[in-house]
């Protein structure tokens, strides 16, 4: 939902980032206002996933230039957990398995970390159980998943649903969904998309990183951006995604080369 007068949540200017000395992001400019849904599309290796990891603070990536302002704060100055507690959420492309730690414990520790960081009291086990069981409905997740180890033995779809459950609990201001549609069958895709749509409000925003237009049938973006060679090279409305689906990416790369 576009509202020109809405507050700017995220402002990225001339962002450069490298991994192991190789520059991947080469000057990204990007702005997100409250209430908006942005899709970032592009070929493998274009820098989409790197961009999401840099925003979340992955230690393997080094920011070499540029700035990222999140709700008036310099995001790059914050530790990954501080970014999370200030309202940034990254749904992982490949959520990790944490054997031996129950999903319920993990979610409670994360939830209470947020509360503590925001000056609220931690909630006890019983109140948390009520809350998490209620939120599980958002992604139609059976409560039995709460007592299994985090993501261990979960199918691809179950892992992604678990990511959205975390998002439902932590209620981020900015959600970045990295290839959340990959490996999902159509039913799981609907459930996950539905969950994301339910969580969408005029006060928060999401960035969907995806290869395919398919996801965008269910979560309709306000803006579609194309990333190539570490920069955003084209921005349009949702119809750009359809164009990419039918024409591929070559024409954009060619346009970019001419420019």
């Amino acid at each position: 939902m576009i509202n020109e007068t809405a507050k700017t949540i995220l402002s990225v200017r001339n962002l450069h980032a490298s991994v192991d000395g190789t520059e991947i992001l080469k000057g990204v400019n990007f702005e997100v206002k409250a209430g908006e849904v942005h899709a970032i599309m592009g070929l493998n290796g274009s820098g989409k996933s790197t961009f999401s990891k840099v925003l979340a603070g992955h230690p393997d990536y080094e920011v070499t230039a540029g700035e990222v302002i999140f709700q008036g704060t310099d995001l790059l100055e914050l530790e990954p957990h501080e970014r999370a507690n200030s309202g940034v959420f990254l749904a992982f492309q490949y959520p990790l398995e944490i054997p031996g730690v129950s999903n319920r414990d993990f979610l409670r520790v994360a939830y209470n970390s947020h509360r503590k960081a925001n000056g609220e009291e931690e909630i006890d086990v019983f109140d948390f159980d009520d809350l998490v069981e209620e939120r599980s409905n958002v992604v139609k997740m059976d409560v039995s998943f709460l007592d299994r180890s985090v993501n261990e033995g979960f199918s691809g779809g179950e892992k992604k649903r678990n990511e959205i459950l975390q998002m439902a609990l932590l209620e981020p201001t900015l959600a970045i969904l990295d290839e959340t549609d990959s490996g999902l069958d159509i039913d799981a895709l609907k459930i996950v998309s539905n969950g994301v749509n339910q969580l969408s409000t005029p006060k928060n925003a999401s960035i969907l990183i995806t290869h395919y237009q398919r996801l965008l049938n269910y979560i309709v973006p306000d803006y579609v951006h194309v990333m190539a060679q570490g920069r955003i090279v084209k921005t349009g409305g949702k119809e750009l995604a359809q164009e990419l689906e039918s024409r591929g990416y070559d024409w954009i790369v060619a346009e970019e080369a001419v420019a």
Partner: peptide
């Protein structure tokens, strides 16, 4: 694993607490 620590950090859990949780999980199996 650095990736496991990062995953927990990205959920608001400090690096130190993440390491404790991972150790605990390793043994709890």
């Amino acid at each position: 694993q650095a990736d496991e620590v990062f995953y927990l950090q990205s959920r608001g859990i400090s690096a130190e607490q993440a390491q404790r949780l991972l150790l605990y999980g390793f043994g709890m199996e």
